[in-house]
Design a protein around this nucleic acid. Sequence first.
DNA 1: ATTATCTATAGATCTATAGATAATGC
DNA 2: ATTATCTATAGATCTATAGATAATGC
Lengths: 215, 215
Amino acid sequence: MTAGAESAPPRKRRNPKGEARREHILDVARTIFSEGGYHSASIADIAARAGISQAGLLHHFPSKPEILLAVLNARDLEDNRKADDQPAGVPYLNHYIRVLDSHASDPALLQLNAMISAEAIPDSHPAHDYMVRLYRERLEGFTAALEGTFDTDAMPDGVTTTTIARWIMALSEGLRLQMLYEEEPLDRARILTEFLQTLSAFVVDKGPITPDSDA
Amino acid sequence: MTAGAESAPPRKRRNPKGEARREHILDVARTIFSEGGYHSASIADIAARAGISQAGLLHHFPSKPEILLAVLNARDLEDNRKADDQPAGVPYLNHYIRVLDSHASDPALLQLNAMISAEAIPDSHPAHDYMVRLYRERLEGFTAALEGTFDTDAMPDGVTTTTIARWIMALSEGLRLQMLYEEEPLDRARILTEFLQTLSAFVVDKGPITPDSDA
DNA sequence: ATTATCTATAGATCTATAGATAATGC
DNA sequence: ATTATCTATAGATCTATAGATAATGC
């Protein structure tokens, strides 16, 4: 479930001061990657905005790819702190929508995720393997959590729980792009909720899809 | 409807030889942008693979942003050649699905569209305005074409034709990312069709959603 | 006269390393 | 002894321009 986290290297012993600096660099790097993606970011820029020399930065992260991977793994940790011991079925969906909604207040995170998702498509991108794993695990996680929740026999031929998982994942990412290209705020969580409610005729256990419940 | 096409500059007179070279450069540029996006592409690389010097290339397109915009506008022309005089309602959906399906055989186009969609989110990206217009016009076009096709009164509160248009657009783009991150081919058109068929209970005119019909 | 093309190059970045100095931790 | 940090810099790219030469079109 935790894409990339298992590859965390054996931590070196670190200074409290260095540790704090490291965290700060990651913060700044995340902001800069979110502003223009990986390729258009420069180590010099990250260093300058973090208030350290370029060589100083490279002492903490030996190369530019390492910086990106550290940013992604940090994000991962955050996400998984929230995502542990989730329920399945409709409560899972409600939980998911709430998480999506909470991201609306963090445009930098939205933009980072959107940009890296596309930028990492080529094999050569440093986050490529990370993203491949993330997509696979997310799809598997969704499918497992929703297995048996929808009456797929009553749905059009060919539809499986995996199909529904794909719909939800695709909608989330597609609506994110729409949000980011529009001036007025777009309530992505609401639009996704409306979609899921439209499917409620096919929900087996008939729990209501309303993210405000079972919190 | 034709994002960017109205800004086509008054064409200079051109040599047949130059014209052919220009087209060839655009072809190569499209390939290279599709491989790694705009930022990681270099003029030198495009020139080399097009068999021309860098300065020779810059005679045809005065700067890197101009190259990208020319690639996008060329793509636009292609798309609109197909997209003219489309029907509305369910036939429109069937037509749309067929177009989507036809793209499956052109991975470079898929990857170009996916990468530029995300890369152009920041205001500073040369294709930003182009993409903003494209998203707006696409949403308006979809909404107009589908107005009255779905019985939104029978759907969850808040759902409008625009909501449905957003679902379809988002699904298309989200599924494209899934395709590009997976090894085995993913039939995006089929998954989208299954989604639309699931909504068929709400279709007013009851035309069947099957892309193979009314071709 | 305009278009197409080239070589050469200026000037800006960008990644990463070398090598030195200061501070910290056992 | 290790960690944190700096200045200086090598070496690679990258965009775009200057200025010249050849070919094409009225």
